[in-house]
């Protein structure tokens, strides 16, 4: 067999990249045994180059196309045209974040944070009410009398209905969970546990295939097995 004798050629740019990739892959995997200098090295490089990557990403995706380029090339008259202000206001809000480094006016930095939080929290509330509460509740309304659907589907819907109701009862905070409420919320907990167990076991599949991807990289691309 031709395993292990067809490693990626180290002297080509492509091959060199594969060796570097393989080295870092092994550095991270070594953490499984225990923390070690190789992992710490890889961790530092990972931290640095990922942050560097996102600096570039932020500039090329946001700052340059949305701010700098239109500001320089769209021909707005500074201070006068509305278009100029539209571009400059976010810069002001953004730069305002840095006032925290000036102790005397550090509290001004909160203004930017407040606008950001207010907007997104409210947007999320709308999306959740419209996109989650309404459709999920609507889907739970099913007929107790099977009407044309196969028995098994009908039974599943009944189970889903009972489960949703019990789990929602579990989430009641303003009443003590005893008596009927306690019993129902207990059933809710059972549903939660079944769900967690099944979902956990099920997710393992996806995780294994990610590992396979790495092993194929090491075996195939680097060691040249099957090449």
């Amino acid at each position: 067999m031709h395993i292990f004798f067809a490693m990626a050629p180290l002297n080509t740019p492509d091959g060199f990249g594969i060796w570097v990739g393989a080295f870092f892959t092994l550095c991270i995997l070594s953490f499984l045994y225990k923390d070690n200098p190789f992992f710490r090295f890889a961790e530092s490089i990972f931290a640095g180059c990922s942050l560097g990557y996102y600096i570039g990403n932020t500039f090329s995706q946001t700052i340059v196309p949305n701010v700098l380029e239109p500001l320089v090339h769209d021909g707005h008259t500074p201070f006068i045209s509305w278009g100029w202000w539209v571009l400059v206001i976010p810069i002001i809000i953004g730069v305002n974040l840095y006032t925290r480094y000036i102790p005397k006016i550090a509290w001004v930095a909160r203004f930017s944070l407040a606008i950001y939080v207010g907007y997104y929290a409210a947007l999320e509330m709308m999306l959740k009410l419209q996109g989650e509460v309404l459709p999920q509740s609507a889907d739970t309304i099913i007929s107790l009398v099977p009407r044309g659907t196969p028995m098994i589907d009908w039974f599943t819907s009944i189970v889903v209905m009972i489960g949703v109701l019990c789990v929602l009862v579990y989430f009641f905070f303003s009443a003590e969970h005893k008596g009927v409420l306690g019993g129902v919320s207990k059933v809710g907990v059972w549903f939660l546990m079944i769900s967690f167990g099944a979902a956990f076991a099920y997710t393992i599949m996806g995780r294994i295939s990610i590992l396979i991807g790495r092993v194929v990289f090491l075996m195939g691309d680097w060691l040249g097995y099957g090449a």
Binding site: I3, I208, L211, I212, V215, V216, M219, Y225
Partner: peptide
């Protein structure tokens, strides 16, 4: 080990 063995 069993992520590697079946590949070979």
């Amino acid at each position: 080990v069993f992520a590697i063995v079946p590949l070979i």
